[in-house]
Design a protein around this nucleic acid. Sequence first.
DNA 1: ACCTACTGATACCTGGCGAGTATCAGAGCT
DNA 2: AGCTCTGATACTCGCCAGGTATCAGTAGGT
Lengths: 282, 282
Amino acid sequence: MADLETRELRYFVAVAEELHFGRAADRLGIAQPPLSRAIRQLEHRLGVQLLDRDRRGAALTDAGRVLLREARTALDAVAAAERRTRRAGDPKRPLVLVTKAGASHELLRRLLDALAAPVEVLLCEVGEQARRLRDGQADVALMHRPFDDLAGFDTADLCVEGQVAIVPAEHPLASREQLTMADVRDVPDLPIARWPRLDGSYPDGPGPEVRTQSQLAQLVALGRTLLVIPASSRAWQWPEHVAVPVVDAPDVTTVIAWPRSSRSQEVASLVRSAVTVLDGLC
Amino acid sequence: MADLETRELRYFVAVAEELHFGRAADRLGIAQPPLSRAIRQLEHRLGVQLLDRDRRGAALTDAGRVLLREARTALDAVAAAERRTRRAGDPKRPLVLVTKAGASHELLRRLLDALAAPVEVLLCEVGEQARRLRDGQADVALMHRPFDDLAGFDTADLCVEGQVAIVPAEHPLASREQLTMADVRDVPDLPIARWPRLDGSYPDGPGPEVRTQSQLAQLVALGRTLLVIPASSRAWQWPEHVAVPVVDAPDVTTVIAWPRSSRSQEVASLVRSAVTVLDGLC
DNA sequence: ACCTACTGATACCTGGCGAGTATCAGAGCT
DNA sequence: AGCTCTGATACTCGCCAGGTATCAGTAGGT
């Protein structure tokens, strides 16, 4: 009853992502026949069909979809083990804090100023923090409830704030003192941008599809989309835009998150300082 | 830059647990020399010393401790991938629900009666549920907040209840209508039993060390320990004991937990029925 | 209806590496 | 000293991952 090896998981993930043995083999840097054989062995060993082969490629079965999801988490965990061990062996490792590009600069700067220990900052795209934390590329993350997926992490709240709508200065909405979600939803000339779901697909709607903060920033600069964001994220506001409070938008809580059961002394003390420094500050 | 293989992780975990190459090799069913070589290669590849070798065995370094923890989670994730995929391929798989032996029988019975789909019940020791869920041996778990470690799982609350103290019928405390935590803490002749922490060590204190529910049941039967437990767990009460409400003990919430991002349709509908069935019932 | 192009599967060979046996080397014990 | 325990080293062997060459089936163009 031989166990699964990470090599087999990597092979399967490659095939499941490419849905094509040849391209997957290319990506893995091996030839196609060994890859076919490896997947076939894997299926045989698990006693489960993972792929429906077809002349025009391959398609995932239900079991294949399960394995794809599970294999990714397993590979993340293995990568985390490797990275964290390497870091643990480095006597003067700085902690890595990951946050999304475009989040409040102000809060981050205060935090870093207040911390005694050197902290390396890693910026990533929206929704990427969780993976960076899970696979060991970062030790702590700044995330935002209720937007980010906090499952699997311990968290401490840092601050709570309302949200504002970013609209072009000459737009009728810009003169209002405050707005409601009803006001900003379905504004015909300023549709709200759509972010991808966890599985990569996009919800329906009139707004443009965006995947990165920079795409979004560009759309905002062009006055092509309406934005509802935490008040502190106004950092990237252009003079030709106005921020108007949206009174009934859910409050956004900035939290500091770290992997559950991180026994690290450094992480614990960083979290403690973060909470102390920012308590009652916003 | 070869990746870590689960074989290497299994080898390392064996050595780290045995702290002895020979015994670890025995446990793995291989000879000692290949094991020594594998660990040495692992250290070399990670660029980190994992073990301090010594004539009387081996000792973990800091980095070794990190890898031990990370490797266990990674191996759990790999095992989960394997099990869940196997189950996904089985057309008539029953869901597995894990709960701790000694928890409320009543709630569980009602739950099972009300569910249409067949559910397999797996009983385990205190604190084991999380691992069973994490490594794919179970699909859902009944757990208790604030006792159990719920990090990494999605949960739904099933019911909330107070706690009672279990004391021998002839003890002075037995005649009281209600108690406080102050009353039951530090009762000289009835010290509260101590459970192991997550890392296996025991907190200090006068009470007996217990690891399993059956050990505890025996101590209670002997009148050697005082117990504060959820009211519904009175199932295992002997006639010579009395349950007295502890008014200021934290309420215990029975929750149903499942792995985060379990996309399984069956799990979702089981959780939904569970919440519906038990809502307002206790 | 043919041929072509593309898919994944098969056959067969080769080399590297994981595992085994035998042995060494050093530090406590008696 | 000699025994015994530890982990490390030397060397061989055999399996299996990986490579090359080729097959086989279908879609689609002509």
